[in-house]
């Protein structure tokens, strides 16, 4: 365009992170907003797209990497975290993002979360929580409320939901936050903060499914219910209070940072670099790798 505005004195615009691939989510799906907020956060962070690896599992939400210009990896159901960690260890200079659904993250992939937490590996994990299995057409999810009737629980579920916030806090995560697709600017700020956090950052995002979700989970209803933790005067350094607030998952919709460890342990990727530096000082010749096996 000839009469385009001059570019701002800043490196990146949200659109720099938008790929040509058009989302095929249902119109009205909360995931659109999450994507929009992510573009914003990435623009604010200012790393070029080719230095970002964005990994997901399988699900509607897991399509998200393809809609960004980052190096994307849409992997298999529930395994985004292990793959993301491999990438981060292989090249710690990359910005590594990980995203997926509630089923992906807390059902099939639930076992991986604890381990990403205890490694405090520097990546940001965004769970797009819609309390339902979207891609497979509305089955019960691990975050579905007790009693929910779905195609696989036609008489109502007999289980309590997983509480993603408490789950991750319980494992000792250093950064735990919640956002919603009903507050995109707030969500963008939370994602940005998560990315900047040096270590494993977990962000649960209430991102409703318009096709299979319940009416009371939709954006409009969320907007009426949400309360920012800041407005409650919560101090994100207070881990115990964070846990107390997190217990309200499913009842209250709190947004913002529940817990940010003021003194997180060193990240796994950093420790890997240090060990490589320490041990690699001798820089042996790989062609002589068998020398130590010679029987003297």
């Amino acid at each position: 365009m000839s009469n385009a505005l001059p570019v701002v004195d800043k490196k990146f615009e949200p659109k720099d992170f938008k790929s040509d691939l058009k989302p095929i989510w249902c119109p009205g799906c909360g995931d659109f907003g999450v994507l929009q907020s992510l573009y914003r956060a990435l623009a604010a962070i200012g790393r070029p797209a080719h230095e970002i690896a964005f990994v997901s599992g399988i699900g509607c939400s897991s399509r998200i990497p393809g809609y960004t210009t980052a190096y994307g990896f849409n992997t298999v159901h529930g395994r985004a975290l292990p793959i993301a960690q491999g990438i981060k260890i292989a090249n710690p200079s990359l910005l590594v993002l990980c995203a997926g659904g509630d089923g992906d993250g807390f059902s099939i992939g639930g076992g991986h979360v604890a381990h990403a937490v205890r490694r405090n590996i520097d990546l940001t994990y965004i769970v797009m929580d819609n309390q339902i299995y979207g891609l497979t057409k509305g089955q019960l999810s691990p975050t579905s409320p007790r009693g929910l009737k779905t195609v696989t629980s036609s008489l109502g579920s007999l289980e309590d939901p997983v509480n993603p916030l408490l789950y991750v806090l319980g494992y000792g995560a250093s950064f735990v936050a919640q956002g919603t697709a009903a507050d995109l600017p707030g969500l963008a700020a939370i994602i940005e903060e998560g990315i900047r956090f040096p270590g494993f950052a977990f962000i649960n995002v209430q991102s409703p499914c318009v096709t299979y979700g319940e009416d009371e989970w939709q954006i409009k209803e969320q907007r009426a219910r949400m309360k920012s933790l800041e407005s409650l005067g919560h101090d994100p350094k207070d881990q115990l209070h964070a846990m107390d607030l997190a217990r309200a998952y499913g009842k209250e919709l709190y947004t913002g940072v529940f817990y940010r460890n003021p003194a997180p342990s060193p990240t796994y990727d950093q420790l890997v670099l240090e060990r490589q530096k320490e041990k690699g000082a001798s820089a042996p010749d790989p062609a002589r790798v068998l020398d130590s096996l010679i029987q003297r």
Binding site: V8, D9, E13, P14, A44, A188, P208
Partner: peptide, 18 residues
């Protein structure tokens, strides 16, 4: 040069996704 940017506004005239 421009001193305001897209990040300063959110959904002013754009219809909400939902």
């Amino acid at each position: 040069p421009r001193s305001v940017e897209r990040a300063m506004i959110f959904d002013i005239e754009a219809p909400d996704y939902d």
